[in-house]
Simulated assay, not measured.
Amino acid sequence: MHRYTLPAIALHWLVALLIIATFLLGLTMVDIPGLTPTKLKYFSWHKWMGVTVFGLACLRLLWRLTHKAPTYPDSMPAWQKNAAHAVHGLLYFLIFAIPLSGYFFSLSAGVPVVYLGIFPLPVFIAPDPELKILLRQTHYALNMTLLAVFCLHVLAALKHQFIDRDRTFQRMLP
Rank of each mutant, 00 (worst) to 15 (best):
T5Y: 13
S101D: 05
F150M: 12
G102H: 04
N143M: 01
A156Y: 12
G50H: 07
M76C: 03
F169E: 05
A57D: 09
I118A: 12
L152G: 04
K159E: 02
R167F: 07
V123H: 05
W79G: 05
M1Q: 10
V51G: 12
L135T: 04
I98D: 02
Y42V: 07
G117F: 05
H46Y: 00
M29A: 14
Q170T: 06
P37M: 03
R60G: 08
L152R: 01
A86L: 15
I118D: 04
F119V: 15
F54C: 05
L100G: 10
E130F: 06
A84I: 03
Y4G: 10
H85P: 14
P122C: 07
L147Y: 02
F54W: 13
L90W: 02
F93T: 10
G50S: 10
E130K: 00
H2Q: 10
P99Y: 08
M144H: 00
P70T: 01
L25Y: 06
L90M: 14
L100M: 12
P70C: 11
L142G: 08
L147S: 06
A141F: 07
M172L: 08
P7C: 03
D166S: 07
P112E: 03
L40K: 00
M144D: 09
W45I: 10
K39A: 14
V154D: 11
H67S: 13
Y115R: 10
W79H: 12
R167I: 05
T145Y: 01
T38W: 06
I133K: 01
L14M: 12
L135Y: 12
I125W: 03
T5M: 12
G117N: 12
I163E: 03
A8V: 01
V154Q: 03
V51W: 08
F54S: 05
A141R: 07
G89Q: 12
L35P: 00
L107W: 05
A83Q: 14
K47M: 10
R3E: 07
A86Q: 08
I32Y: 14
L135H: 04
T5G: 02
K132L: 12
P174S: 15
V15R: 13
P99H: 04
K68A: 14
Y4T: 02
G102P: 02
D128T: 06
Y140C: 01
T5V: 04
G55N: 09
V113A: 08
A21F: 08
G117P: 10
L62A: 14
T36K: 02
W13Y: 13
A83L: 15
D166Y: 06
V51F: 04
S108E: 08
M144A: 01
E130D: 11
K47G: 03
